[in-house]
Write a protein that binds this DNA or RNA. Structure first.
Lengths: 253, 253
DNA sequence: GGATGTCACACTGTCAGACAACGTTATATG
DNA sequence: CATATAACGTTGTCTGACAGTGTGACATCC
């Protein structure tokens, strides 16, 4: 639908055709993020290609993108599979996330960037926590963190954050104990939101550090933590997006 | 040659065969880093493939890696070319670098990691500055920064640093005024080295911030800065590595 | 029985060739 | 001179092919 008429001439925005490879990579990345493609799951090139209705070369090009994002692993002769995270990866991923988010917070505060988007993300997170569905909470959590980085206005930080989100998700999904989320995360997030709104850099950075350390600790040692309300994702958390579940079945064979 | 006998049994290290795509990507990345492939230079797939003696599909797969690293740009129908940085990219790249290096510094200091490698890198930098060759100084500069991140022990931070190094180099090479380096950078680097050795986190972070801000400012406005000793890279700075210069000629045609 | 060897199958790695769609440049046309 | 047209070079994508490699089942051997 056309936007309402204004006094200005309609602004023509640059047309961006995304390449097929982008689209393929997005599909697979989404499938991973949503859990349809589990860590360790290997990609059968022929079957996957015909499932996506692209040729094998196109698929392979897309897979290379994901490999360099660190979302998939490649070994010559054995092909490509969804990266399976180990405990070694936990601190590493969160070190990167702290780097990104701390820097984003600094930029947002020092440059006085608008932060409406962060508030919105927090609101959605609060809503998700009500819903009590692990996956939804996880999504909203990561979206909240991404909103901070997005507000910084740095495209590179934002891009890095996007892949770090997938990495984070892979950490959870690689955990043999299953995907789980702590409900009390909402308090820290409120605090972070508040600290940013106050322009309190030191406090914001401290909270970021605390959030990261907490998340890493929880993954290292999830159940011994006292007083943590835990929402565990069970099978009722539906992951059925389109053909991908069927793809997973096909690939099991 | 077999290593000298020790009291221990010889340790068998995992064999890592790097894939062809890795090798191709490395070649091109190096060519860019060394300046043989200039920003804006487009890649002719057929010619480049036969120069590297690989097939077009293999080359294309490797190019996708570089695209997702942000080192090359892709537009459907127009192929792939070396990313040309603009002034908008300057702050963005340095924001990422500050994020990475600040985090690395924190880890190094807090975990008390060994920092011999940083000292070595500093020594090499001092040597390079003597030599007064812009490219050598630039290399040593970036190596010094990378050494810090390497000491952190985080593979992800280190990987990110590697691509940020190429980005940084691309910033310089994209500058129409030509590649140049300030000689007085050595003092700040000594200071950083010292602050890290002292385990002084606050000071280290401050220096990192200052270095980044300074570098960005210099790129924004290189010649108006007073009192700066400048080494300008001229044609005597040889960039001739193997076939790549010839490749560049071929691609001009 | 556990380790080792053998074989067949499935898949990846890599390539050549092909062709349509697209971009770009040179040329013609009004 | 601006605009259409034609010609050429390149990319995007696909098919088909085949050798090299990984994998699992099965046979064998101490």
């Amino acid at each position: 639908m056309p936007s309402p008429p204004t006094s200005e001439l309609p602004v023509l925005r640059k047309v961006i055709r995304s390449s097929t490879i982008d689209l393929i990579a997005d599909q697979i990345r989404n499938a991973i993020y949503s859990g349809s493609l589990a860590p360790g799951q290997s990609i059968n090139e022929v079957r996957t290609a015909e499932l996506l209705v692209v040729s094998r070369p196109s698929l392979r090009e897309a897979l290379q993108r994901l490999v360099s994002e660190g979302v998939m692993t490649h070994a010559p002769g054995r092909g490509v599979w969804v990266k399976r995270m180990t405990s070694d990866d936990i601190d590493d991923v969160y070190a990167v996330r702290e780097a990104i988010e701390a820097q984003a917070v600094k930029i947002v505060i020092r440059a006085g960037k608008p932060i409406a988007r962060i508030h919105q993300a927090l609101a959605k997170l609060e809503l998700a926590v009500e819903g009590n569905t692990a996956r939804a909470i996880g999504d909203a959590d990561l979206d909240f963190h991404h909103s901070i980085v997005a507000c910084s206005g740095s495209v590179r930080l934002s891009d890095l954050m996007k892949v770090s989100m997938v990495h984070t998700r892979l950490l959870s999904l690689s955990d043999p104990r299953g995907y789980e989320v702590r409900c009390d995360l909402i308090e820290t997030h409120r605090e972070l939101n508040e600290a940013i709104a106050d322009g309190n850099e030191a406090r914001s950075l401290a909270v970021v550090g605390r959030v990261m350390a907490g998340a890493a600790a929880r993954l290292h040692n999830p159940l011994t933590e006292p007083g943590a309300v835990i929402v565990r994702a069970d099978d009722q958390d539906k992951l059925v997006d389109d053909q991908w579940s069927q793809l997973r079945d096909t690939m099991k064979a």
